[in-house]
Design a protein around this nucleic acid. Structure first.
Lengths: 144, 144
DNA sequence: TTTATAATTAGAATAATTCTATTTACATTT
DNA sequence: AAATGTAAATAGAATTATTCTAATTATAAA
């Protein structure tokens, strides 16, 4: 094994899975590992490539299954942009996403609790949000 | 013609298209008409069905072309939810979307300018947003 | 250890979107 | 008004993204 989860992350995964009555199989562990290791926003295809370095025979269907499980457990989030495949994100802190239309790069933008609270004020009575996805598209000028 | 655009909407369409050097063909007009008429959030497939009542031979590819053009002209917006086909929205006022996970229904949630300004404060220096997409998923209890 | 269940697998199936090559419509120039 | 050039529409194929299916394997519990 080239990579491996920290004890803390491993434990977090085990606890979250157990909470749903699910098992920490090597596929799930490996997918989680890959998602945590490089904190970018891979598509399912990209996850497949990375996981295959550890588990050369894993299929795309299993990667989808594992990612779906991780999302259900609240360990991974899905990120959507217009007409683009789903991307997956291990950052569980409140944040938005920004895609640079020039480079395609995706950035996490942290949101303070105050902003999150402010956001929720737009929910009318009777609307209970389980989660939200806030994505910006624009251009970056990071040269300064 | 059963339906038709108001003069105001027609003019808005013409002006927006002309601004991009494009022509108001009957397909574009009809797609726009359908999108404006029923203010829900149809997928491209649903738009096809509706437009075919007017233009029975129009193809899905043309519907995609027209929708893309309308998006580029700023007359229609795309709405994304996890693992779901793109939906299209004619509401150009600042708002978010809420999808009820029970019924699948999608609601527009208006955002006041103050909230929009607040949102933009999370953009770091050098990040210029052209647009954003804010989507909530949760449950509604509209029985009260 | 048997048994029951959950998970994985490959590959097929489906759904969503884009591409291609041809035809048609439009606007402009003659 | 006819010819010309370009934009748009078209059908259908191709591609991409995702889900489903049925068979096999792994795991946990009895």
């Amino acid at each position: 094994m080239v990579y491996s989860l920290t004890d803390k992350d491993k434990e977090g995964l085990n606890r979250a899975l157990k909470g749903k009555g699910l098992r920490p199989t090597k596929q799930r562990t490996s997918v989680y590992e890959v998602i945590l290791r490089k904190k970018d926003h891979p598509t399912a295809d990209e996850v497949l490539v990375r996981v295959r370095r550890e588990l050369p025979t894993i299929s795309l269907a299993t990667v989808y299954n594992c990612l779906e499980t991780l999302v259900e457990c609240g360990l991974v989030r899905q990120v959507n942009f217009d007409r683009a495949p789903t991307r997956f994100c291990p950052n569980l802190t409140p944040h938005a996403h920004f895609k640079c239309s020039r480079t395609g790069e995706i950035f996490d933008l942290p949101m303070d609790p105050n902003t999150v609270e402010h956001l929720k004020t737009i929910l009318p009575k009777g609307f209970l949000a389980e989660n939200f996805d806030l994505s910006f598209v624009g251009s970056t000028n990071l040269s300064q």
